[in-house]
């Protein structure tokens, strides 16, 4: 049963990257307007005006432009930002075109050009020692600086979440040091560490084994009525969710990529315990208004 607490309502960015997990054809049909930052920023503003509390996004050139527009237009308002790093698609695309070493060179050059002295110094140390923890910290400082330079220094960066591909690969390969270093470093920076995963039940089991305190972190994972991307099964994810001591899960894919109607999707979320909030992508103004009003009425 649900816990009846108010939930955080986040507008997601998948449509702004041309993503549809229902069908890529659907994403193409939506057209290019969606990926224009001005259009996307309008949708985020409309969502915020209709009771969304924040924005969950992968850190890319598109979303950084959206943040900049939001900052310029709505500077006094500071929605909660939930940033996912890295934007894996962009790095894979670059690796495809440049090769892995070409990607590494390009990335190093970007950090140098950013002028972030702390990141540059740490990066050099990491490369010389080939120390993965130092390289991770360098990367995180770089991404945070990108967000702040677009959203403003006073931006309300609630959480920085590791992208599913990193989280899930780290889980599979038993890289407990990666998770522990990440949590420690982010807590020192005063930002809630987060993890995006497609293997929620597996993550809960591993974190319990590694002694990672769920109180310190936020988890983003799919939860929807049809069990889409709830691996290994809907039932195991629900069971794992029920074992948590407090709500620290942001439910994503609640509409199962548009497969479900909003009302039936929300009814399912209402029935779950330990859900801290939900993230929903929107592609039209009307869609943004209707969805977030409904979410506010039922969950907010």
């Amino acid at each position: 049963m649900g816990d009846g607490r108010k939930k955080i309502l986040l507008v997601g960015d998948n449509p702004f990257h041309g993503i549809s997990h229902l069908s890529q054809e659907q994403a193409r049909v939506r057209g290019k307007a969606m990926i224009y930052p001005e259009y996307a920023a309008n949708l985020v503003v409309t969502s915020l005006e209709n009771e969304a509390n924040g924005f969950m996004f992968s850190v890319s050139e598109t979303t950084l432009s959206i943040l900049q527009i939001l900052h310029e237009r709505e500077g006094d308002k500071r929605p909660g930002l939930y940033a996912l790093v890295p934007y894996a698609f962009e790095y894979v695309r670059l690796a495809t075109q440049l090769g892995t070493s070409g990607l590494a060179k390009k990335f190093a050059k970007q950090i140098m050009v950013s002028g972030n002295v702390r990141a540059i110094a740490m990066g050099l140390k990491g490369v010389i020692r080939m120390d993965p923890v130092t390289l991770l910290k360098t990367y995180l400082i770089y991404e945070i600086s990108r967000i702040k330079s677009s959203a403003g220094k006073q931006a309300n960066l609630e959480s920085l979440l590791l992208h599913e591909i990193i989280t899930d690969m780290g889980l599979a390969l038993n890289l407990d040091w990666l998770f522990k270093s990440y949590v420690d470093f982010m807590l020192k920076l005063g930002i809630k560490p987060g993890f995006d995963t497609r293997n929620f039940a597996y993550l809960v089991k591993k974190f319990n084994g590694w002694g990672i305190n769920f109180h310190d972190v936020i988890i983003a994972a799919p939860f929807n009525k049809v069990g889409f991307q709830m691996d290994p099964s809907k039932r195991e994810c629900e069971t794992a969710l029920a074992t948590l001591d407090e709500p620290n899960v942001i439910a994503i894919s609640i509409l199962a990529a548009g497969y479900l109607k909003p009302l039936e999707a929300i009814e399912y979320i209402e029935s779950l315990p330990n859900i801290k909030g939900v993230a929903v992508g929107v592609s039209k103004e009307q869609h943004a208004r209707e969805t977030f009003k409904l979410l506010k009425n039922r969950l907010g």
């Binding site: 591909i165 497609r198 293997n199 597996y202 691996d231 290994p232 809907k234």
Partner: peptide
């Protein structure tokens, strides 16, 4: 479409 561990 569910699997034991979803990666990629």
């Amino acid at each position: 479409d569910n699997v034991g561990f979803l990666l990629g």
